[in-house]
Nucleic acid binder design. Structure first.
Ligand SMILES: NC(=O)c1ccc[n+]([C@@H]2O[C@H](COP(=O)([O-])OP(=O)(O)OC[C@H]3O[C@@H](n4cnc5c(N)ncnc54)[C@H](O)[C@@H]3O)[C@@H](O)[C@H]2O)c1
Ligand SMILES: NC(=O)c1ccc[n+]([C@@H]2O[C@H](COP(=O)([O-])OP(=O)(O)OC[C@H]3O[C@@H](n4cnc5c(N)ncnc54)[C@H](O)[C@@H]3O)[C@@H](O)[C@H]2O)c1
Lengths: 251, 251
DNA sequence: CCGATTTTGTTCTCACGTTCACAAGCTCCT
DNA sequence: AGGAGCTTGTGAACGTGAGAACAAAATCGG
């Protein structure tokens, strides 16, 4: 998202090891599919098999894998364990990443209780909150700690990833603190656009947005041929008559 | 995702009302930005203002809005309330959509407790689970009901959107039940690739994948110039010697 | 009423992503 | 050993998305 892209204009320089962002987003899916095959005792899989398991088409899968190198065998397919290791290494989940979660409310609790992270390359090292009533509460084998301890924890555990599950209001402030403390990757659940300096990656998960995208398609399904072309707007008051109150945002 | 796209090859037929998927995904962001401006008492905003609030650049924002129609005023900007209504109408959130949540564990509880959906065009009409111990539990003003009641609820409340927060194992089965009951849009939190018939839209939210994408970039930051080009693979056993166990997946 | 100023809506170009199609390479069978 | 049969890896075609740039439209001051 916020990566400084220094790509030269020439033909796609492959040796430069720049994997397309769209491919990066699918590698974890392949990794999971491979784990599934591995658990089923399958040792070799063709691109077709893998593609089915990952829910993509096989051409895309082959092209994606080709960015990592030539790890398959023509006429045979891919060795599941070997490919799994290669993808894990490329993503960087062969060793664990330390993660802090900030904001231990509804969502923070759910995340803290979730066991799926540990098995996928992540280790939650601290649950932080600003609410004194929460501090000290035990969740699983962890304890909620004071957000003020952030800097120490980041330094002590070499934390590079932070998860924000506070309300929208304090999210930017929490984000700034995380960045100042040295966190360089942030996963944000609060429904706000966070701004971060260059070099810090941010991803957001927004359930309302997901639902609204579904709603858009849903609407088109049901109204397929029934709606009037322009569903009649309500009185368009306030466009030409109002004394333009704002004109600038926030500034 | 799974929409049957019947697009003809000619020049981009605008009257056909096909809004690019990338734009659809941003409309909810604009909607939220507009709501924020509105709450701040700002009545008019330029594309530059809006773009800043939404975290995109202004050219993209203008182009996105142009797919909906000409709702701005040159030299002035956009009327916040008016544009907000137009986007809400386009997305389809001017009236509420009924939603069921299936699997009231850690995550299901968090979602059930979340108040943000109601204010954004969605109404949770039922919390469903298969665990008898959970059925009857009250969460806010709702009660967990038996998953067996699904069909009745979908019919009674015209539910078109389902949220799956069960473990990965039963997710496909739950999905099939939802589809059979008439649900045509699904938001899936379980870490599996669900397969659905044409006409059903599916979106997934996968936290492990988000973290892994962050980890990939994180790895590239820290190892920027320090890693050996090929970090030395472990013994590549089992590629040429093993008696190809599988060769097919699941079939 | 007119020109300066502002800001939209749109066109054009380039970059990125997806899919097709096939040569290259591997295994197995005869 | 040689050919048949698969499956990978990739070049090339196609489609979609992003951003720059600008003409068209609106306001405002004089
Ligand atoms: N709960 C959901 O299902 C859900 C769904 C979608 C989005 N979200 C978003 O996720 C975020 C969290 O949701 P939630 O339901 O868990 O909220 P919550 O109110 O239950 O929890 C928020 C927590 O953050 C803590 N907090 C507040 N300010 C803080 C600060 N400055 N520093 C550290 N901690 C602070 C609070 O003490 C509280 O424990 C919200 O932004 C919400 O919009 C939640
Ligand atoms: N909790 C998290 O933070 C988190 C994070 C990432 C992903 N996930 C995924 O979200 C899903 C839910 O996670 P969770 O932590 O809430 O799990 P959980 O085990 O706490 O809850 C799952 C719930 O689903 C119910 N269930 C099981 N089978 C069912 C069926 N056939 N029909 C109806 N209900 C059924 C169970 O009774 C349980 O209440 C999982 O797939 C998990 O991998 C969770």
């Amino acid at each position: 998202m916020t990566r400084a892209s220094s790509r030269r204009p020439g033909p796609p320089t492959r040796t430069e090891r720049g994997i397309p962002e769209a491919t990066v987003a699918r590698l974890p899916v392949y990794l999971r599919a491979l784990t599934g095959l591995s658990d089923s005792g399958i040792a070799t899989a063709s691109s077709e098999d893998l593609a089915t398991a990952a829910g993509v088409n096989s051409a895309k899968l082959r092209k994606d894998l080709s960015y990592l190198g030539s790890y398959g065998t023509r006429g045979v397919g891919y060795d599941v364990e070997y490919l799994r290791y290669q993808i894990a290494r490329e993503i960087g989940v062969t060793q664990d990443w330390a993660v802090v979660i900030v904001g231990i409310g509804n969502l923070g609790h759910a995340l803290a209780n979730y066991s799926g992270f540990g098995t996928r390359g992540f280790r939650i090292v601290a649950l932080l909150d600003a609410d004194p009533n929460l501090i000290g509460e035990r969740i699983g084998d962890m304890e909620v700690r004071d957000f003020a301890e952030l800097e120490d924890i980041v330094k002590a555990d070499r934390v590079s990833i932070g998860v924000i599950t506070t309300p929208a209001g304090p999210a930017q402030e929490v984000c700034d603190r995380l960045v100042a403390a040295g966190v360089t990757s942030i996963l944000n659940f609060a429904p706000v656009v966070l701004s971060v300096p260059d070099g810090v990656d941010i991803r957001k998960v927004d359930l309302s947005i997901e639902l609204q995208i579904l709603a858009y398609h849903e609407q088109r399904k049901s109204g397929e041929a029934g709606l009037p072309e322009v569903p009649e707007l309500p009185a368009m008051n306030g466009l030409t008559d109002l004394p333009s109150v704002g004109g600038g945002v926030g500034a």
